[in-house]
Computed example of a mutant assay.
Amino acid sequence: MGRPTIVLGKEFYYPILATFGIPGNLLTIVILSRGNCGLSKCITVYMVAMATADLLVMVINALIYHIFSNRFPLSFLTLTPVCKFILYMTFITFDLSVWFTVSFTFDRFVALCCPRFNTRYCTQQTATIVITAFSVFSFLKDIMVLFAYETQNIINKVHRGCRASVAFFSSPLGTVSVWFHSACVVWIPFILMTVFNLLTVHRILMANRARRRLQGHRSETHSDPEMESRRKSSILLFSISGIFILLWLTAALSFVTTRLTNTAYYRGDRTDPAYIATETGAFLKFLSCLQNPCIYAATQRKFRDELKNVLKSPWTLIQRLCRKLG
């Protein structure tokens, strides 16, 4: 009997995802770090942080955990201590990806809705402090992961692999840890992003109506730079946070319905609906780490121009070398 479709899908999905996700996020970091996209330093810090977190997800979660560890079952990556550390890092990288997106959403909410506060909050220094604080919080919060998994197999007296510890997840501490993780990575970020976006939409609509009233009928025949800038900022914000929520929704629902203690997911039948739902949610969740480069390319003209310049630069360098050698 052949392997289940979802298992075959994983073998193709993660290599394809890493192939596009790693260079895509690397290019995004390079382009944004050059500072030629017409973005403020504050926004650039958040966007570089999000791209860095997404890159780490692609490298650690997709490449190392889902590809290398599975393809090379007897490598040092499958040693239980190494496996636990990799799992620990997979939790951290997703935490960073989520909370950096929340931080960006809140920063844009302050910038668009709190004119008296934005000059003090929307700064490069504040952005750096926020990113650092969430990074430290994620590393501390996920330490419990190191105690939540146990050896999966003992081969030639060597402990290899990791599996969820039933004793841990059945304990009160394990139950609290599961729901605390779910709240911190899914539900609290979802609620915050939804609230911030709704308040931002309301503020933008009210500001646009007031501006039209002040300008009279001129808005019908003349472009308004301020409204155009506000429109572009809102498109970028809603694209990033809106698509992020949609892609994480399946993972969030499957997490609640199956829980981390679901034995079918960790040890049993790969055709079980709970396992399929969890893996499908994981597919979409990973896809969220590839969304931002696509969004930037679709919504930001200067980003597209810089992307072209970066892609052309190796060929330009080769041409210059050929001319000098010639």
Rank of each mutant, 00 (worst) to 15 (best):
D272K: 01
L287A: 15
F20A: 08
F109H: 13
E279F: 05
T299H: 08
T271R: 12
V256Y: 08
A53F: 07
R34I: 07
I318C: 06
E226P: 00
R323F: 15
I191M: 13
D272Q: 03
T261C: 09
S170I: 04
A18Q: 02
M193V: 11
L325G: 05
A18K: 00
R120N: 09
P115E: 01
C37V: 10
L246I: 11
P189T: 12
T299F: 11
C162K: 02
A18F: 02
G281L: 03
I86Y: 05
L146V: 06
K10Q: 14
M144L: 10
V158D: 02
T175I: 09
A210K: 15
T200S: 14
T19S: 13
L140K: 04
V158S: 07
F147K: 10
F244L: 05
V7C: 01
M227D: 06
F255P: 00
V256L: 07
S171A: 10
C114L: 15
L284P: 04
G2K: 10
F72Y: 15
T19W: 06
A148K: 07
R231D: 03
R230L: 10
S40W: 04
P189E: 12
S69L: 08
I240K: 05
I16D: 00
N118E: 07
R34C: 03
R212N: 09
I191R: 07
V145F: 10
R163Y: 06
S33A: 14
T90P: 08
S135N: 04
H202E: 11
F100N: 13
I86C: 05
A277C: 11
A264H: 12
Y46I: 03
Q300T: 13
V57M: 12
L79M: 11
L77G: 04
F286L: 12
I22S: 02
R71N: 14
K302M: 09
G21L: 00
